[in-house]
Design a protein around this nucleic acid. Structure first.
Lengths: 197, 197
DNA sequence: TGACGTGATTGCAGCTTGTGCAATCACCGT
DNA sequence: ACGGTGATTGCACAAGCTGCAATCACGTCA
């Protein structure tokens, strides 16, 4: 038998998700989480720099895969479509499974301001990572940032719909619809002047 | 003579900005800030719920003014333009003055992850406030959110340019340019299909 | 077989953030 | 003169987080 049970980080995450769900984020102490995972408070901080980080194990790998997906994309497709396709692909292969776990985690995150704040931070990091990748692929900095931000905006809207109780459509489908809505919202023929430099 | 010197919150903010600039956010304790402002650690927490909040005094008033600006706008203008005009108006009357202070504060905020995180949170709160206002003015929820998010995205891009050393153009000008760039980036004729419901 | 390095875990001491509660004390209206 | 108001403060305390040293099974290598 091994000296320690394996997958300490995952066990800590599971315990934290349960406890945050049961009694809320603030009313849960690190010691409680560690105890439920059969570990110690000190060990918790060996795995996570932060109390909040325990719910964001996936985001690093997620970001890596999305950037990778962008890197292996046709150079001729416009930047926004590149990002959207990458988001769709990753959403398909990792979010669409574990729909229930994702929903539970999302509920916990949005229920607490501190966790929500951290999620915003992760989204921002992902946005700049995407923008950087687009920039290295030849797009100007501003274009890269706007494309990345627009895609993430649509992703957020789609995700919000995807996690509403009655929804059955796939996240990928909702994302393309959201992009379309964004397109019509932004490029409204009205007051936008031609205004070229 | 008054028993206490006035403007405690402002004094605390000034002291905090100085100290964060000099020695960084993490290496500055609340006691230090309070002491430099001639107050106590306990008093600091009477004014701010958080160590980070001391740099975000303005954001509440800013949000209020922007929402107000949207409320007093012609109903016929498309939602994105409504938000952009509101942002321009407020940027004109409060950001464009104190350009140096704003730049200093922005440098400190972006230099520290925790402060940056809080700024993202404030931006998100502003986005949902704008979206809510647009929704009460009759726009569907998704359109309202996308318009608010798109405007904030352009605002972020414009602000980034505005705070680069060589820049002399006005923030309002940069914002309209950013919106135009976003428009061409999003409504690229390429792969976006008509795709109506 | 026995010595040794590795690495995950743990205990402990300590600092900082943030909160609850009670006390102080100038100011203001009556 | 008297009592209410409100900003400030001290004190005690919980919780987050860090640095440092120690433990101890496991694998390796002589």
């Amino acid at each position: 038998m091994p000296r320690w049970k394996p997958d300490a980080a995952e066990r800590l995450q599971a315990a934290a998700l349960d406890l945050f769900d049961e009694q809320g984020f603030e009313r849960t102490t690190i010691a409680e989480i560690a105890q439920r995972a059969g570990l110690t408070q000190r060990t918790f901080f060996n795995h996570f720099t932060d109390k909040r980080e325990v719910l964001f194990i996936l985001s690093a790998e997620l970001q890596q895969r999305i950037v990778q997906e962008i890197a292996t994309c046709d150079d001729t497709t416009p930047p926004l479509d590149t990002v959207v396709r990458a988001l769709e692909a990753v959403a398909e292969t990792v979010l669409e499974q574990r729909r229930t776990v994702t929903a539970r985690r999302h509920a916990v995150v949005t229920a607490n301001p501190e966790l929500h704040e951290r999620e915003l931070s992760k989204n921002a990091a992902l946005t700049t990572a995407i923008a950087t990748e687009l920039h290295t692929r030849g797009h100007p900095r501003q274009t890269a940032f706007l494309a990345a931000g627009a895609a993430m905006l649509a992703q957020q809207a789609a995700f919000h719909q995807w996690t509403t109780p009655g929804e059955t459509r796939t996240l990928s489908h909702l994302l393309t619809e959201a992009v379309h809505s964004l397109s019509t919202t932004v490029s409204n023929p009205a007051t936008r002047k031609s205004h070229q430099r």
